[in-house]
Structures are given as C-alpha cells and as structure tokens.
Design a binder for these strands. Structure first.
Lengths: 109, 109
DNA sequence: TCTATTAATCGTAATATTGCAATGAAACAA
DNA sequence: TTGTTTCATTGCAATATTACGATTAATAGA
C-alpha cells in the first residue's frame, strides 16, 4: 500500500521519522554538507556541485526547506541557501535524544 | 525514476542516508524505542505492542537487522530481539558527526 | 522591449516502500 | 504423529519517491 500509518504512533515517533526521512537520501546529505562546508550562503552552484539535474536539486531543496533546515534568500535572479541554525539546533536535540539512549546489558543478548 | 543515484555520492554520504532511511519510518522508531525501554530482549510482543500486522513487523525487523542495529536470538519457537550495542555506538558516531556540524554566521542569512 | 539567466513547477516514467493475506518453516507438546 | 505456536517469506495492491524534460515565472541587462 505504500501508505505509512502515522496515526498508530506518537508525535515524537512521527517527528523522528520525518526528520530521518529527509536525511535518507545522499543528495540531501550532500547539499547540507556543502552548505556547512562553505560556511556561508550558497548561490545556485549546488546543481554543478552535486551533479543531478536542476529540477531534481530544486525538489530536494524544497524538502529541506519544508522541514525548516535551510533558508533561501532571493538575490537578483539567483537564490542563496543556507542552514537555518535555530531549526537545525532543535532538530539536533530531537535526534540526539533518540540516538543517545543507553541500555543496560540485557538478559539474553 | 525512483532510483537513487548512489554512485554520484561519497561512501559517507551514502552511509548516512542508509542509516537515516531506516529511521525514516515511525514503526521502526517505535520498535527501537521499545527495545531500549524494556532494557532487555523482547520476545515477540512487538506485534501487539506496535499494532501492525505480524508480517509487517517482521519486515521492519528485517531492515533493522540488515543494518546491524538489532540482534535476534532464537529461543524455542520464539525469537528474542535486542539492540546490538556495538553497532548502535558505531552508527551513533556517524550520525553525531553529521548532525553536530557547527557553522559560523553566514554572509546573507 | 527583447533576451538571457536562474530557479520553481508540471507532467510523467521508473523504481521503491508499505502493508497484509496466505503460506511456509521450525520448535515444542500431547 | 498431529496439532499448536511463533516467526519468516511470498505475492500482490496501493502509494511514495526519484529523476528529468519541458515549461513557467521572475529578474537583470542590452
């Protein structure tokens, strides 16, 4: 069916899944890494940098924007993208909490 | 086309994406949280706990096992699952490194 | 105005994912 | 052996994702 049954899970579980899903594609990982690496706004060179077609990159950027992880500033005919540091920090907290769980040694494993 | 072009990206980027993709479904998040919460091996009660059909849970468990995040011990007719703490730690390192990047204030955002 | 540049959107094809009924396999009990 | 329990696998239908050509929208420059 391809349809995730989100109503069976907590908001927290759905949030974590939505965040993780955005990171679940190497192009989006590459975009984010590039935005971090350049340490500033990146104006349009993402298409040549990543190597996918322009509509494809635009689509990935849209998903990152939708989650609030990046911002886009219109600058003439081009658009400058950068990390939204506030939302990134919020996202990081949610994911850290999930990933950083510790577990005592179980009974059988 | 639905086909991710993995050959255009670094191994690191593909690794991060593969890990994140597994977390990109609330059922798998819920399974992992339950394994952490019970603090021990969980034998079969995952189906009633999560609320999806048994084959669906089995499929999600398979993906978690494939990434090495959980282990399954056969115990008579049932199977006990638990977190693979070593692999979880390795995964955590990779994801922390990605999530914990810091960025100086950019020029335009 | 006309043209070039840049990026978003639309439309579509190919592939992936999700979920479950049905079935199969393995271990145990009677 | 026969039945029961538990979980994996198979097969399939519905939906989602990925990628890109074609087009559109907006701005800048000649």
């Amino acid at each position: 069916m391809g349809l995730t049954k989100t109503d069976m899970f907590t908001d927290e579980q759905n949030d974590i899944a939505l965040i993780a899903k955005v990171f679940g594609h190497p192009a989006r990982v590459a975009i984010l890494q590039h935005l971090f690496k350049t340490n500033a706004c990146v104006c349009g060179d993402l298409v040549t940098e990543i190597g996918l077609a322009q509509p494809t990159i635009s689509q990935h950027l849209k998903e990152l924007k939708h989650l609030g992880l990046i911002k886009g500033n219109v600058e003439g005919t081009s658009v400058c993208y950068c990390i939204d540091t506030d939302n990134w920090a919020k996202m990081k907290n949610i994911m850290f909490q999930f990933l950083d769980q510790d577990i005592a040694k179980g009974t059988c494993c």
